[in-house]
Computed example of a mutant assay.
Amino acid sequence: MSLALQAQPFTREQCVAGLRAAVSILEKWQASSEQACRILRISRSTYTRARQRDVAWSVSLDSDQMQRISFVLNIHATLRMVFDNPENVYGFAAMANDNAFFNGRSPLEIMAQGDMISLYETFRHIDVLRGAQW
């Protein structure tokens, strides 16, 4: 494959901005630090630095980590489309869900299993709420 066709890596600035946005959302969803680290596949120290808004730092993330960030951002965007009130936008992820896929577990519990398919399937099932067809 030629170098021109390979995916370009994300800049460190893009990584920091994406990670900080995802961590902020996960905090508003009331995810524990352990859950957030498993969902985003990051270390505890990276999570701690991402929470520090007034500290300049740099991080390099791989495509898997950036895809995980993208899922968190897209789930958040979907919840904002579906719900009008902040209590549901930010509370939904931590609520037990009796839908067959969730089987009484919260979306956060499913996502925090740490594997990409759990994150993807959680997004897919939440995206259906806005009328998406899969």
Rank of each mutant, 00 (worst) to 15 (best):
L3F: 13
L3C: 08
L3N: 14
A4D: 10
L5P: 05
L5F: 15
A7H: 07
Q8T: 12
F10G: 03
F10K: 11
T11F: 04
E13G: 09
E13Y: 12
C15R: 00
V16Y: 08
L19E: 02
L19W: 05
R20L: 07
R20C: 08
A21W: 04
A21N: 07
A21I: 10
A22M: 08
A22L: 09
A22N: 07
V23W: 07
W29N: 03
S32Y: 06
E34N: 11
E34L: 09
Q35I: 11
C37M: 09
C37D: 01
C37R: 04
I39E: 00
L40S: 00
L40I: 00
L40M: 03
I42R: 01
S45M: 08
T46P: 12
Y47F: 15
Y47G: 02
A50G: 00
R51D: 01
R51K: 14
W57G: 08
S58L: 14
V59K: 00
V59T: 02
S60R: 03
S60K: 04
D62I: 09
D62W: 06
D64E: 12
M66A: 06
M66H: 04
Q67W: 04
I69E: 00
I69H: 00
I69A: 01
F71A: 03
L73E: 10
L73S: 05
N74T: 11
I75F: 05
H76D: 14
L79G: 04
R80H: 13
M81C: 14
D84P: 08
N85E: 15
P86H: 05
P86R: 04
N88Q: 15
Y90T: 06
Y90M: 09
F92M: 14
F92E: 13
F92D: 10
A93R: 00
A93W: 01
M95A: 13
A96P: 10
N97W: 08
N97A: 07
D98G: 08
A100I: 13
N103D: 15
N103H: 12
G104D: 01
S106K: 00
S106M: 02
L108F: 10
E109D: 13
I110S: 04
I110W: 08
Q113N: 11
Q113M: 12
G114Y: 00
I117T: 10
L119I: 11
L119K: 02
E121L: 15
T122W: 02
T122M: 06
T122V: 07
T122P: 07
F123H: 15
F123R: 12
H125T: 06
I126G: 12
V128R: 13
R130V: 05
R130Y: 07
